[in-house]
Nucleic acid binder design. Structure first.
Lengths: 248, 248
DNA sequence: CTTGTCTAGTTCTATATAGAACTTAAGAAG
DNA sequence: CTTCTTAAGTTCTATATAGAACTAGACAAG
């Protein structure tokens, strides 16, 4: 009756069982089959379903917890983790004047257009050359003072729905909106920090003289499966910023 | 005969066994009782010695591997990990012109003196106010071109032997020397990156005009047990640098 | 309505055991 | 001397099992 089918674990037979199970579950999560917040079957149920020992399923789940894509709560269950990420990106930024208060700056989207993507940005977003994309210019302010000038590019393919959005309803955090509106979850990012000189539109909007030192942070944000999702370049007056990090 | 004594696991009895064993082993490593490269007893021997099951020792060891202070090699044994760290600090730095080649710049120590420590630095090194310390000024060059100006402070207490060292024998990496000469191992560091303007000695040694944008990186390096060991401030022409990092 | 008790379900800890996979060194065979 | 075999010791995988610790909900008592 309830015997159903024992799902034989696919994949390279040379790999250990727990590894193959972890791969299966990871794939189910990455492809969106299991969504953040979903609850997984208990370790005993998984063991029964796949015909392996409970200790083996336990080891597979532990690996995914270590990866940060699962969360286990004693007595409650095992859940797909919701990557709360926008916060952690601001972990490194600090305003020099303020003490380490976790302030997320206000946001003003100045423009949102579809236009030809510069080839270098298209390349980084893994898009074909000379294709269109969504471009935004956004200012970030604290107490009304412009702090950051951001240029943001999104590929059209998963983000078409973003163009329909009412911008007045967009808060200071974009990544939750990518999730709800376009089903895209930002899981990690690469940042590259350089120092530039102010000029052109950024200098004007930041109310800086041309030639003033400018911190420039290029970020490439990627989804859970590593696909590049968003490219952005943030610039701000150098004297306002510090970038803090722990190395080990 | 070889029964010897079963070492009862100390510590908070409410904590699980594997946790207490992990704490014991971690403490033995942090206090220098077990040195990097040392081999630990096998999981079966540990189990016998502490009177617990092999699976429990295994879980304790796994935690320390996760921490990065142990390394296990199948068929060989379990070893205290040697923190190869100087390399990883340069992981983030890249010269803008060169491609991502892993070049460690040459080193020229310009001065090494014992003098009164500035109070702010003494505070960060957890030293009493108005005490003496070792101060070094070091230039770092690539192809003979000065790239970085470094000011380095060491507390006298563990680093007295460093003053006896022949500077001509000091290579580009200081941390291995701290280890061999003063028994101090750098395990982690906090870095704070800001942008400054060139002036004074750094500007002169870097051959920059006053007011040129300068990247300034303050680093506080700590030993395995978290004690601050070294403070340094590195400055370099902003246009030469980029700082790369992955966030997740 | 509030409080306490019980129960089923979950993860966590701990034990015991067997064999696979790998490393190293010693010794045999050529 | 070189190469192969063997053996001991190690970590790694996998199974099986029992109970502790915790959660959430149902139900009873007050």
């Amino acid at each position: 009756m309830s015997q159903m089918s024992i799902a034989a674990l696919q994949g390279d037979q040379r790999l250990p069982l727990y590894q193959r199970l972890a791969d299966v579950l990871r794939a189910e999560i990455l492809c969106g089959d299991r969504r953040p917040g979903d609850r997984l079957p208990s370790e005993n149920v998984l063991a029964r379903d796949y015909g392996i020992a409970p200790g083996t399923t336990r080891k597979a789940l532990a690996e995914l917890v270590e990866d940060g894509i699962l969360e286990r709560l004693q007595g409650r269950g095992t859940f797909v983790r919701r990557p709360s990420f926008d916060r952690s990106l601001f972990r490194f930024f600090r305003l020099r004047t303020k003490s380490g208060a976790d302030v997320i700056p206000d946001s003003q989207i100045r423009s949102r257009t579809v236009r030809r993507m510069p080839s270098e940005i298209a390349r980084k977003l893994a898009q074909p050359d000379a294709c269109d994309g969504i471009r935004m210019v956004r200012m970030r302010l604290i107490d009304g003072v412009p702090i950051l000038h951001e240029e943001i590019w999104l590929p059209l393919t998963p983000f078409a729905a973003f163009m329909e959005l009412d911008l007045t309803e967009v808060g200071p955090l974009l990544y939750p909106i990518y999730d709800t509106c376009c089903d895209q979850i930002v899981a990690r990012a690469d940042e590259l920090l350089t120092v530039d000189q102010a000029k052109g539109q950024p200098a004007r909007l930041l109310e800086l003289e041309a030639g003033a030192p400018l911190v420039c942070i290029e970020r490439l944000a990627c989804s859970l499966d590593g696909t590049p999702i968003e490219w952005r370049r943030s610039r701000g007056a150098a004297e306002h910023f510090q970038y803090q990090i722990e190395i080990r």
